[in-house]
Amino acid sequence: MKVPGKMLPKIIGFIVRKPVTVLYPKQRLTPPETLRGKMKFHLDRCISCGLCARDCPSAACTMHEIDGKKRPVFDLDYCTFCAQCAESCPKDAIEMTSEFELAHYKKGEAIVK
């Protein structure tokens, strides 16, 4: 049956259907639990081994000496949110949260310590 308009009933149906998208800042979709967002760093668990910085593929995680302790500092401007640092950490000192709204005005503002 080679007639045009095979899709017509569907198209007409779309006139009365609600849009699939939501009006973002007012309505929000809940992200899945597995989402890899901004990381949380637990200083008390850190043993300064530097494995996180060694495995980071984008050099977002670097080791710095702060208050006499070597510890990682995360620059989210470079971060690709692969969560390799959290996986490499032998003491579970790095935790990925599902916080994803990380827009900021200036370079170097999004730093997790």
């Binding site: 699939v20 899945p32 597995t34 890899r36 692969c82 969560a83």
Partner: peptide, 24 residues
Amino acid sequence: YTWQDREVVQDLLEMISGNRVNYA
């Protein structure tokens, strides 16, 4: 149409891996 249906797959991928593309 197809891109709307593709969202279903993307959501499944995001649900398991945490990302829509580059699943790591």
